[in-house]
C-alpha cells in the first residue's frame, strides 16, 4: 500500500536535481583525500593564479585553476565542503532539535509553557542574527565547535516559531481529542498525533537550515572568525578570492557558485521532501 502510494507520485525533477547535487558534494567531501587532485594546502609559487582548464595557460591536474599562493582551487573546494557539511549537519540538527521540541511543547501545551517560550523567542529574534553569531563566536572563541554552537543557539527560533504554529493548529483537531478519549496522556498525544503531522515541516526546515548554516559558516570564515585559517573553507576561499578578483576571477566565482548551488539545493530538497511526504494527494 505504502509503496503504491509513493510510486504513484511523480518524482519531481526538483528533488532529483537538488538531491543529486547534494549527494555529489557530500560524497566528494567524505572522500576528499581520495578524490582531490592535489593537496589543498600545498603552495607552489610557480603555479600561482593558473586559470581554469579551458583557458590558455592552464595546467593539467589543476582543473579550476589555482589561487595567488598556487594552491589548487578544486581541491580546496572539495576539502572546504567537509567543513561546510559538518557544520550544516551538526548545527542544523541541533537547532532543529532544540527549536522543534520547544515549539511542539509551546504549541501543544499552550498556557504557561507557551508564554515563556514565546517570550524567549521574541527576545532572541530581536538580535540581528549575523551580528549575534559574530558576537557569540567572539565570546566562545573560534573553532569548529563554537561555530556549530553559535549557529544552533541563534537559529533554533526559526524551528520554534514554525513548529509552534503548526502544533497549535494540530491541537485543535478532533483526532487530538479522540486520542484523549482513547486514554492517551498529553505527552503521548503530542508524540503520536501531533508530531507526525508537523514532521514534514520539520524536515523541510531542517534542510533549509542546513543551507543557512553553510552560509553563516561562510560568512564567519569570511570575516575570519571561523576555523583556523589554514583549513580551507568556502568562506575563507571567497574572502581570498575577493582580494585577487582582478587577476584571478575564478578564485571568487567558483566557490560562490558552489555555495549558492549547495544552499539552493538544500532549500529545494527540503520543499520537495515535504511535498512528497504529504500523504494527502492534493
Amino acid at each position: 500500500m505504502d509503496e503504491a502510494r509513493i510510486s504513484r507520485r511523480a518524482l519531481s525533477p526538483r528533488l532529483w536535481l537538488a538531491g543529486g547535487w547534494l549527494l555529489l558534494a557530500l560524497l566528494a567531501a567524505i572522500f576528499a583525500p581520495l578524490i582531490a587532485p592535489q593537496d589543498p594546502l600545498a603552495q607552489d609559487l610557480m603555479l600561482e593564479r593558473l586559470p581554469p582548464f579551458w583557458l590558455d595557460g592552464a595546467e593539467p591536474g589543476y582543473w579550476l585553476g589555482t589561487d595567488s599562493l598556487g594552491r589548487d582551487l578544486l581541491s580546496r573546494l572539495i576539502f572546504g565542503g567537509r567543513i561546510a557539511f559538518i557544520v550544516a549537519f551538526a548545527a542544523a540538527i541541533s537547532a532543529c532539535f532544540i527549536g522543534s521540541a520547544l515549539g511542539l511543547i509551546a504549541g501543544y501545551f499552550g498556557g504557561w509553557a507557551d508564554r515563556i517560550i514565546s517570550r524567549i523567542v521574541d527576545v532572541w529574534m530581536a538580535f540581528p542574527p549575523v551580528l549575534f553569531a559574530i558576537l557569540l563566536v567572539a565570546v566562545l572563541g573560534t573553532g569548529l565547535s563554537s561555530v556549530i554552537l553559535a549557529i544552533a543557539i541563534i537559529d533554533w527560533t526559526r524551528f520554534c516559531r514554525v513548529i509552534r504554529a503548526e502544533a497549535m493548529s494540530q491541537a485543535r483537531m478532533d483526532y487530538v481529542e479522540s486520542a484523549r478519549i482513547a486514554g492517551y496522556g498529553r505527552i503521548g498525544i503530542m508524540l503520536r498525533e501531533v508530531l507526525p503531522n508537523v514532521l514534514p515541516s520539520v524536515v523541510a526546515l531542517l534542510s533549509l537550515e542546513m543551507g543557512i548554516a553553510v552560509i553563516v559558516e561562510a560568512i564567519l570564515s569570511f570575516v575570519n572568525l571561523s576555523i583556523s585559517t589554514d583549513d580551507p573553507t568556502w568562506g575563507s576561499i571567497i574572502a581570498e578570492g575577493r582580494l585577487s578578483i582582478h587577476q584571478a576571477w575564478w578564485v571568487l566565482v567558483f566557490p560562490l557558485i558552489t555555495l549558492i548551488l549547495t544552499v539552493l539545493s538544500f532549500s529545494q530538497f527540503g520543499e520537495a521532501l515535504k511535498a512528497r511526504f504529504d500523504p494527502v494527494l492534493r
Partner: peptide
C-alpha cells in the same frame, strides 16, 4: 465525532 475527516489523523 461530527466531522469524520478531522477526527482521523491523516498520517
Amino acid at each position: 465525532f461530527q466531522d469524520p475527516m478531522s477526527s482521523l489523523n491523516p498520517r
